[in-house]
Each structure stands twice: as C-alpha cells, then as structure tokens.
Design a protein around this nucleic acid. Structure first.
Length: 906
RNA sequence: GCCGGGAUGGCGGAAUUGGUAGACGCAGCGGACUCAAAAUCCGCCGCCGCAAGGUGUGGGGGUUCGAGUCCCCCUCCCGGCACCA
C-alpha cells in the first residue's frame, strides 16, 4: 500500500495544531447558544469499522458547521465497554475481558484521533470503569426504594448442556451456539424496571420531539402499543373452588362469538390441567422448547390442545373449553385470550385446524341486523369435493340491483368473507348487543360485565417491563446482598461501587463470578452475619441509557451529574444507527424521566434532534464448497465480469480463476469477509478523503454502498482543490470590481447560487449534495480560470474562500492548511460561515419552460418581472410550440411563475 | 408473523417537497499530451430510432392541466422484534 499524496503529513500537522490550541475542549459560555452534538458511542470491538467512520463523520460535520455558525459546541466520545463480545473473546483467547476491552479502547482511540474529529477527549468515558458504573448501581438502588425496580421471574433461553443462559444471539436455529443442544425456556428470578409505569408519558412525549424522524416515532409508538379494551373474567369451578380466568380483548363487541378460550403454555391453568394428563403435559413441554424470541414465536406453526377444563361465558353462562395455544404470549395482557374464530384471523386458522365452532356476530353496518340468520352448521366441514365450507350468514335481499329489481339474498360464506371478518360493524345474533355498532357494543359489554363484577374497560400496553438482570460476568454488578436471615438486602450507598473483579476469564459455562469467593463473600449490611453477593450483572442498555448526561457533567465521585449538565443538556443532535430506533432510545428516554423524577435533571427528553444513519454495505461474494458449506471471498480477491453495457454478470476468484457467486450488497461483516478496514483507507488516502467519500456517496439516512472507485474519485477531487489553491496568488486583498463582465458575473452567480443550495441541503442534513456543491464550485472556478478575464482574481479568491469554508466541516485538514497558506486568516475554525450575496444572485431575465399538454416543447426567456399575459403571449408565439397547436384549440394556459407555462390544448 | 423503511441510467445518487427526470461523481467510449504507460486535460454518455420523434423513475390501477413525488393494490430488498450492541 502506497501513500498516494502528501495529505498524510498535512493532516498530522493540522491535528497537532488543534491539540496545541486545545481547540475542542468545551467550556460553559452563556454568551453563545450551545450545541451538544452526540454520536452513539462505540462498542470497543477491536477495530473501528466503516459504520463508525460514517457515524462520527456525520457528527463532526454537524459540530464543525455549527461552530463556524457561532455555537458553543460540545462533541464528546466514550466507550460502551461492557458486553458479550468481550466474554466471547475471552473464551477464544483466554484473555480477561477487561484487558481485551482496554486494549481495544486504546487502539480505537488512536484510530478515531487519526480521522481528525473535533472531539473533547477530556470528557472520555468507559462504562466498565467503577467511577462510571457506580452511578448505575446508585440509581438502581433509588429505583428499588421507589418500587421502580422490583424482582420477579423471567423466561430465558437455557442451554441444558452448558447449563447456561443464552442470549438470543447465541441461539442458532433453536440450538445453543457452542453445544448445539436444543434450547429450552426456563424461568429464573431477575430484576425488572417498571418502564410500563412510564408508558403513557413515553408515548405522549413523542409529540414533544419534532426533531425526530417520523419513522422512529411511529416505531416507538407501535412498540409501546397503547390499546383500549376490556379486561374481564370467565368464572369457573375447579377442585371445588370458585375461580376466574382473566383475559383482555380489544374486540369486546365480538364477545358473543367466543367459542373457546386459549391460554399460554406457562399459564397456571395450563399447569393445573396438565396434572394427570400426560398428553397435555407433553404438549406443554413441547411449547417450552425453543427460544424466547418473538420472531420465532410468531412464525411457528399454530398448535394447541384442549385442557378438558370448561369456564363459563360471563354474559351467557355457556360452557366454553380452555385450550392451550402456543401462539398465546404469557408476557402480553393476561396470558390468556378469548377466541372468536369468526372475527380474528389467528383464532380462525386455529378453529379451522381443530374443527372448532365458528359464530359470526358482526356484520357490515348496512345490513338489516334483525333479519340475519346463521346456517345450521357453524363448523368447517368437508362437503366431499375437497372444498371446505364454513358457516353461512344470510339476510333477505333488500338492496335494489342496477335494473331496479331486488338482488339475490345477501348470503355470505366464510370463503368469501375474508375482507369483512376482522372489521368492525354492527352486532347480530348477540342478544343484548343486537343492532349496536362495534363501538357502542364495547361500551355496553363493559357495562354489563361491571354490573356482574366480572370486568371493566382497561388500557393495555404492548410494552413490557425492562428485565435488567444478566447471568453474565462482564457487566455492572447488581448491588444486592443475599442474606439467609434478611433476604435480599440493597448494598448501602457508602459501600458503592460494588467493584467487578477484572481478572476473571469466562469459559462459556455459567458466570465465573459464582466461583469467585473473594467477590461472593460479604457481610449482611442489616444483621452483620456472613452473606453472599448477587452475581447477576446489569443489561448493557443500562450503561448507555445515561452516558450523555455524564459527558455533560464535571467528573464527580459524589454526584451522578452536576450543575454543568443543566447547561449542556438536552443533547441538541443525536446521531446513530437506525437499528437503535426502538430499544436504546426508548430506554434512554425512560431513564431520563426517572432521573428527572429523582430531581437529578430538569429535562423531560434527552435528545432534541435525532439523525438515524444508514448502514454501510459492500459486495458479498461466495462459493459452495464441496462439503456443501459456503466459502466467502473478500472483494479484493475477486474480479468482476461485466457485459458490453457494463452490467455485472458474474465474478471470478483471482486465486484460481474459477467463478464465484455475487450475492448482492450486505452489511460489512467479518463472517462474510466483505469488510473494509478504515485504517488502510486512511493510510492510503488520508482522513479527508475517507471523510469526503463517506459524505458524498449517499445521504446520511440511507444505506451506503462501498466503492473503491468512488474513494478514488473523492481523492481526485481533493487533489484538484489542492492544486487549484496553489495556482492562486497568496495576496487575496483585492476588491471586487463594481461591474463584472458577463462571463465572470455568471461564474460568481453560480458560486453563490450553489452556496445557497448547499445551505438548504445542510439544513436538511443532506451532506452528499453539499459535497456535490463543493465540486460544482471548483468546476466553475477551473472553467473561468482558463478564460482569465478582467476581475478574475477577486472572483477567484471570493469563490475559493467560500469553497474552503463549505468544505471545512467535511475535509477540515485540507481546508485548514489552504486557508492559512492563502492568507485568508489564522484559523478557519474562527472564520465566519459564508452567506450567499443577493447582489451576486440578482438577474434580469429568467428562462421559462413551455409545455403543451404537459410535454416539454420549448423554452422562452422573459424579463424577471414580466406579467402573466405577456408570458402567455410569448409562449404561444414560439414556433416550436405552434407546431403542436395546429388543428387544435387552446383550452387553458397555466403559468407557474418563475418555472413554466403549460398550454392545455385538444 | 408483526412494526418501520426502501426500489430512479451500467453503478452511487440528484430533482428546493405536485412543475424541464438523470445535478454531482463512478464506470465506459472517443480525443489531446507521451517513445509508451500511468497521471492529467478536452468531449460524448437513459433506452429505441439515421432522423423527426417516441419512450422512460420496481409492477398494476387511480387523482391532476401536469405524478419519481399524492391515493389504492401487488412484488422484491433492508432494519427491528425486548439477552448482539
């Protein structure tokens, strides 16, 4: 690999200059507006990857742009340093996670610094340090005091061979990643945070976030999932005892259509029914196999089994059988649902499979509800032809057909009722509900149930409480002590932090803390007797839920955050991957609200504006191996084959010349061998080229496709900037002539027009077109340079100084060096952001497009203040237009001022 | 399965939010310079067509004087689904 240009040396010098100036250390300053620009901190996985480069370049562009606009900018950086990969690396290399993590941090910090980001490193945080995670523990204890944190059982993936809890990521096709053993669900105790207690505020406050992308707010709203419905009970008698089976439904209007009740496999009633029913017990066991992942749960075959237990319908007293269904989630609502096969798709599929009764009770609103009748056979049955037919609902034909005669009876059969059966309408065959609309019926049902003490209207959330206990070593210890006498005792504040020993090496089976006597042994804070420490650690989402507030605070070992936090918070601009749209952002919002309620901070929402950046993709090449496996090829090991038109038609390996499959674009990953190392990119082309390409190749929110040729292009452009700068004299103090020749006036106008467009693009965070604008400016300047017209020097310096300032957030090193060399100023960081000049933009005439029936047919130049009728006349008089008006009459002429004329003719 | 997003030349993308589709760049082609190559510079470049012209923004329908942009249906791709971070 060869250094292609002299930028490496320049970049080093410029970075040294910034260091010597302490240019990016942020201090409170009430005289300027503050701008807290935060990028999601990286997990120290070993090396920077392109996603990081993209993320932090976006943040740096925003930071530097705002700084030049006069803001007091804070851009900090740190490390999300606890987590699973460190334990995996430990298993593989027999290195303690702490050492591995700190080594990675040291290396990645160097890499980040070589990219020239305007970061205040004095605020650096690593979440695996006791000085940071002490405050996780401290806040957890406050939550315990307030009941926001509590203990209950949780369902986890269990590897029966390693006797270990598995993360979802460690479950591959239902098996443990290391043992290959089928994974089981297991219930264990753990701590939960009552995020559902904040559900309403988390939902409502989305409206306070106009700076967030709509799609993220929509995803969060759906995730929180507020639904209004009815919680009610089916009474039953079992073992001589009266009891109630509670369910929740949003479709109480269909309550008269209930033909069975389904409960989750973990439901107590299922457990009870399995006693003395080996077949059911086996089925429940089967349901407990597999992972806890919702995607798995939702895509598996719907299966069920009757329990033989019957409950009473709360309104009709009819007997309804309880089934165990693998599609019922214990974690949502009551873990039990009323089943209405006629009006719920899942219940319907289930009833069809198991031959259960179907009772339609809601019809479209315009049906004569009094006269609807149901066929005798409310089941699916096979009519011998192989076609399954269902129940038939009929109503007399009242609707006149097109010919005025009555149409045939409104008869409707299941097969033809797909589009209706989930829809609200009007109740039929429903006793007291007959004739009511769905909405009225829900209220009526709630009333009827309330009278009997069997139910009421209720708001139900899809959001579940946040389980924070992890049976893992490399995380923040949960500050609890288990005492045989006193039970679970919180660690007193003055004994914080509970420090994690840093020399453990996990081996993949269980948590090594359970074998650390020096960690485990302690005395009970209450009774003073020997006790054991909790060995579960916290979910790493805890660490990332408040780091932004700690960055903004003076480091203190006596307070979680201090008064400086109030100055910087909330974060003005947050930038990170779209993959964090729900969990991390929701947990951070929740955590902020808890801190607020504890009086620690005064904001409701931590992130005012959010930019969700797209992923970085690269080509994926693979080949089937003889053994049936897949072998991946790095893009540099492959030669692409094109057809005459340049389309990719195939690829072959450079090593053996044999064909490989092009699998399209995918996220850069080690396993697919399609990653590009930022380090070699920086070494070869320099940081500015890497940054420019990242910004130019795609708008920030979209996926970015890697292209080596594109990097070359970026580098070529920066070389042209450098070369052009060095053709200019270094004495720019020449006045702009009062009147420029036509050619130069046009060039100057183009530069200011491009600048104006770039300003607009910057406001939209569309940096790819800002980079384009810089290219356009250079194109214009280079073109004009050849003509060497009167006044050129003044125009060139004005234009180039604009170009450098526009470029400086993206390629700060080159901009800095040229700015000084050309004598524009001491430090481009201190330069004012350029503004487009009205005088340069002004023009006397404008071009209008002429369309005939919406098709482009010509153009016309008019005075900028020409009136409508003059424009119309000019347009109609154009010979190119008249051709298309022969033999037809003009019906209408539409004039869009400043844009176009459309002649409607026919 | 559910929630969210996307699809525009050979490729990445642009189109100031309903008004000239293809800005800017990459690749390609032609030319200049060179003994030659690289680098650099100049020109061409959606598709069909000699041209006139026609056609064209994943597919199908609709609204409008006018649709890449708005509405309905469909296909494919990507992100998330609570223990990867």
């Amino acid at each position: 690999m060869q250094q292609q240009y002299q930028f490496a040396e320049i970049e080093r010098e410029v970075q040294q200059y910034w260091d010597s100036q302490q240019a990016f250390v942020a201090v409170e300053d009430v005289s300027r507006p503050k701008y807290y620009c935060l990028s999601m901190f990286p997990y120290p996985s070993g090396k920077l990857h392109m996603g990081h480069v993209r993320n932090y370049t976006i943040g740096d562009v925003l930071s530097r742009h705002h700084r030049m606009k006069g803001y007091n900018v804070l851009q900090p950086m740190g490390w999300d340093a606890f987590g699973l990969p460190a334990e995996n690396a430990a298993i593989q290399n027999n290195v303690p996670p702490a050492k591995w993590t700190f080594d990675n941090i040291a290396h990645m910090k160097k890499q980040l610094q070589s990219l020239g980001f305007a970061i205040d490193w004095s605020r650096e945080i690593a979440t695996c340090t006791p000085e940071y995670y002490k405050w996780n523990q401290w806040l957890f204890l406050r939550m315990l005091e307030r009941g926001v944190a509590y203990k209950k059982t949780q369902v986890v993936n269990w590897d029966p061979v390693d006797q270990t809890v598995l993360a979802n990521e460690q479950v591959i096709d239902g098996r443990g990643w290391r043992t290959g053993a089928p994974v089981e669900k297991r219930e264990i105790p753990g701590y939960y945070l009552n995020i559902t207690g904040y559900a309403e505020e988390l939902l409502d406050d989305l409206d306070k976030l106009p700076g967030w992308p709509e799609r993220v707010k929509t995803m969060q709203a759906n995730w929180i999932g507020r639904s209004i419905g009815v919680r009610f009970a089916f009474p039953y008698e079992l073992d001589g005892k009266q009891d109630k089976l509670w369910v929740f439904t949003t479709r109480a209007d269909t309550i008269m259509g209930v033909t069975f009740v389904a409960v989750a496999a973990e439901h107590p009633l299922a457990t009870r029914a399995a006693q003395g029913n080996p077949e059911l017990a086996a089925f429940i066991d089967k349901c407990k196999q597999g992972s806890v992942m919702e995607a798995d749960m939702a895509t598996m075959e719907k299966e069920g089994m009757p329990t033989g237990i019957f409950v009473n319908h709360p309104l009709t007293n009819e007997q309804v059988e309880v089934w165990v269904g693998n599609y019922v989630l214990m974690s949502y609502g009551e873990g039990a649902v009323m089943a209405v096969p006629a009006h719920d798709e899942r219940d319907h599929a289930f009833a069809q499979e198991y031959g259960l009764q179907i009772k339609p009770v809601v019809v479209p609103e315009d049906w004569p509800t009094e006269e609807v009748s149901l066929s005798d056979s409310p089941y699916y049955h096979n009519d011998g032809s192989g076609e399954k037919s269902g129940p038939i609902l009929s109503a007399p034909g009242l609707e006149p057909g097109l010919d005025g005669k009555p149409k045939r009876d409104r008869t409707i059969q299941w097969a033809t009722w797909q589009s209706v059966h989930g829809q609200p309408g009007r109740c039929v065959l429903s006793g007291p509900l007959n004739g009511l609309t769905s909405e009225e019926a829900v209220n009526k049902v709630a009333e009827l149930l309330a009278v009997k003490g069997l139910g009421e209207k209720k708001v139900q959330w899809r959001l579940r409480d946040w389980g924070v206990s992890r049976q893992r070593y490399w995380g923040c210890p949960i500050p609890i002590i288990h005492c045989d006498t006193c039970g679970d005792v919180p660690v007193p504040d003055d004994q914080l932090p509970v420090v994690l020993p840093e020399d453990c090496v996990p081996d993949g089976s269980g948590n090594p803390l359970n074998r650390r006597e020096d960690f485990l042994a302690c005395t009970c804070p209450k009774c003073g007797r020997p006790a054991r420490r909790e060995t579960d650690t916290m979910d790493t989402f805890v660490d990332s839920s408040w780091y932004y507030a700690r960055y903004a605070s003076k480091r203190s070992d006596t307070a979680m955050v201090d008064t400086e936090t109030a100055y910087w918070m909330p974060v003005d601009q947050y930038i990170g991957g779209i993959e964090h749209a729900i969990l991390h952002l929701l947990y951070s919002r929740f955590w902020s609200k808890v801190m607020r309620d504890l009086g620690l901070v005064d904001y409701d929402e931590p992130f005012a504006h959010l930019l969700t950046q797209g992923m970085v993709l690269n080509h994926i090449f693979s080949r089937r191996t003889d053994k049936g496996g897949i072998e991946y090829f790095a893009p540099e090991e492959v030669e692409l084959l094109h057809d005459a038109g340049g389309k990719i038609v195939g690829a072959k390996a450079l090593a053996d010349g044999q064909p490989v499959d092009f699998q399209g674009m995918g996220t850069m990953s080690k396993s697919k061998r399609n990653g590009v190392d930022p380090q070699s990119l920086i070494e070869q082309y320099g940081a500015d080229t890497a940054r420019f390409f990242m910004m130019f190749a795609a708008p920030p929110e979209q996926t970015l496709e890697w292209s080596d040729a594109g990097v070359e292009g970026a580098h070529r452009f920066l070389k042209r900037v450098w070369t052009f700068g060095h053709t200019l004299s270094t004495q720019p103090q020449c006045a702009m002539p009062s009147k420029l020749g036509n050619g130069l006036a046009l060039i100057r106008r183009e530069i200011h027009l491009t600048l104006k467009q770039a300003e607009y693009d910057l406001s939209k965070h569309q940096f790819n077109t800002v980079a384009s604008a810089a290219m356009k400016m250079l194109n214009a300047l280079e073109k004009a340079q050849k003509e060497n017209l009167e006044g050129w020097t003044a125009v060139a310096h004005e234009g180039f100084s604009i170009l450098l300032r526009l470029l400086s957030p993206i390629t700060p090193h080159i901009a800095h060096a040229l700015w000084r060399e050309l004598g524009y100023g001491e430090d481009i960081l201190a330069a004012a952001w350029p503004e487009p000049l009205e005088a340069a933009l002004a023009q006397d005439e404008i071009d209008l497009v002429i369309q005939v029936n919406g098709k482009l047919r010509g153009s016309v130049t008019v005075a900028k203040d020409a009136d409508r009728s003059a424009i119309e006349q000019l347009a109609l008089a154009q010979p190119a237009v008249q051709r298309y008006l022969e033999g037809v009459s003009v019906k209408k002429v539409i004039v869009v001022p400043g844009k176009l004329v459309n002649i409607v003719a026919g």
